[in-house]
Amino acid sequence: MSRLAVPKTYKLFINGAFPRSESGRTYEVMKADGGFLANVAKASRKDARDAIVAARGAVGGWGGATAYNRGQVLYRIAELLEGRRAQFVAAIEDAEGVSRAAASAQVDESIDRWVWYAGWTDKFAQVAGNANPVAGPYFNISVPEPTGVVAIIAPQDSSLVGIVSAMAPPLVAGNSVVVVASERYPLSAISLAEVLATSDVPKGVVNVLTGSPAEIAPWLASHSDVNAIDLVGAGDLDWIGLEIDAADTLKRVLRPESGADAAAPSLGRISAFTETKTVWHTKSLL
């Protein structure tokens, strides 16, 4: 006997809560074979605005936490992802229409990347920072600090590995993020948000919007309270226009990437969202 299907309507993830879009809009997400998969909230510019406000409020706490603490919190997320492995694999099979083996490989890759980035949290400052040579009885030290609020247009052609690869590196440095998920494959992004909501990540540090990147991205790029924008998944948008918008408020910008190597793990993705602080300090109390 077949059970009654329960069509779901997924919501946004803003400030640790799961609100509907302020606009009340949703859109249908289809399976690879064309069947109905789920309804998903279609975020408006006001949802993006609310997400930025939440992210701004969370920067101080997350960026101010010790790197060791951030690393533990991020590693715990990898553990939670591992626990939900079967759910993610099934969702990716449904959405992308790929084989179980391919879906499993994507989930594995996502978890591995998350662990890799979590490990860098209390180490990248040693690599990206420096003790600079000076001619005097001083230390001169450069350290990377989080740039603040990072807006991300996640890679559009994958369910999980794309958003993980784009979201993790700014978190490592202590930034808070507003991610616009893949328009076609948003369900794994929302499941990831559910994982984050039950982890130790403080509210507002990660905010996930679903909907049309073409509609939301210009508001993020021109928003004065966004410090950096990662356009990795914006290849199909007018990303040059977005870059010009971002230049108005001197945002850091990462350009679109495509292909199998898009958003591949690298230290560069972490340091792209940092500012270098250089301080002088006396060598001893003379």
């Binding site: 701004r56 021109s222 928003h223 004065s224 309270d225 108005d248």
Partner: peptide, 9 residues
């Protein structure tokens, strides 16, 4: 201005 402002302004 047509775009969102922030506390820095």
């Amino acid at each position: 201005t047509g775009h969102y402002s922030g506390a820095d302004y």
